[in-house]
Amino acid sequence: MTTYDFAIVGAGIAGASLAAELSASGASVLLLEAEDRPGYHATGRSAAFWEECYGGAEIVPLTLASGSYLRERGFLHERGALYIAREGDEELVTQFMQRFVPTGATIQHLGRGDLQKRVPGIRHDWSDAIWEPVCADIDVAGLHAHYLAQAREADAAIECRARVVRLDRRNGRWDIATERGEAFQAAVVVNAAGAWADELAKLAGVKPAGIEPYRRTVAQVRVDPPVPDDLPLVLDIRGRFYFKPESGRLWLSPHDEEPSKPCDAAPEELAVAEAIAQLEEVVDWRVEAVEHKWAGLRSFAADRRPVYGYAPDVEGFAWFAGQGGFGIQTAPAAARLGRQLLLGEERDAMTEKLDAELYSPARLD
Results as ranks from 00 to 15, higher is better:
213 P>D: 12
24 A>T: 04
106 T>H: 15
280 E>K: 14
17 S>G: 15
342 L>V: 06
148 L>S: 02
208 P>C: 12
266 A>V: 13
160 C>L: 10
283 V>H: 02
139 D>G: 03
111 G>E: 12
321 A>T: 15
249 R>A: 14
118 R>H: 09
165 V>Q: 09
29 V>I: 05
228 P>A: 06
321 A>R: 07
230 D>S: 10
25 S>P: 00
34 A>E: 14
105 A>T: 04
55 G>D: 09
236 D>R: 04
296 G>V: 00
92 L>E: 13
219 A>T: 03
151 A>Y: 04
194 G>Q: 11
131 W>R: 08
284 D>A: 14
29 V>G: 04
340 Q>D: 03
38 P>F: 07
121 G>A: 10
11 A>P: 03
49 F>N: 14
53 C>I: 01
9 V>L: 15
301 A>S: 15
209 A>M: 15
36 D>M: 04
262 P>T: 10
215 R>Y: 10
112 R>A: 10
54 Y>G: 05
317 F>T: 06
316 G>P: 06
252 L>P: 03
148 L>K: 03
235 L>Q: 13
70 L>Q: 15
32 L>N: 13
247 S>P: 05
80 G>E: 09
235 L>R: 14
93 V>R: 09
71 R>N: 11
315 E>C: 02
97 M>C: 13
109 H>E: 10
302 A>W: 00
294 W>G: 12
39 G>T: 02
104 G>P: 13
286 R>T: 14
26 G>N: 06
311 A>Y: 08
41 H>V: 00
6 F>T: 11
334 A>M: 05
315 E>L: 08
314 V>A: 03
138 I>D: 02
258 E>F: 10
52 E>P: 01
355 D>Q: 11
143 L>S: 03
206 V>L: 12
326 F>V: 15
252 L>N: 00
260 S>W: 08
250 L>H: 01
72 E>N: 13
88 G>A: 04
345 E>R: 02
246 E>N: 05
292 H>R: 15
79 R>F: 02
152 R>E: 15
246 E>Y: 04
254 P>L: 06
128 D>T: 00
235 L>K: 13
287 V>N: 12
11 A>Y: 01
207 K>S: 14
318 A>D: 07
162 A>D: 11
115 L>A: 05
279 L>W: 10
20 A>Y: 00
285 W>I: 08
13 I>G: 07
349 A>I: 01
189 V>I: 13
22 L>H: 05
316 G>L: 09
202 K>W: 05
149 A>K: 12
133 P>Y: 08
102 P>V: 10
274 E>P: 01
296 G>Q: 08
121 G>K: 07
56 G>D: 04
105 A>H: 02
177 A>Y: 09
173 R>W: 10
340 Q>S: 05
198 D>P: 13
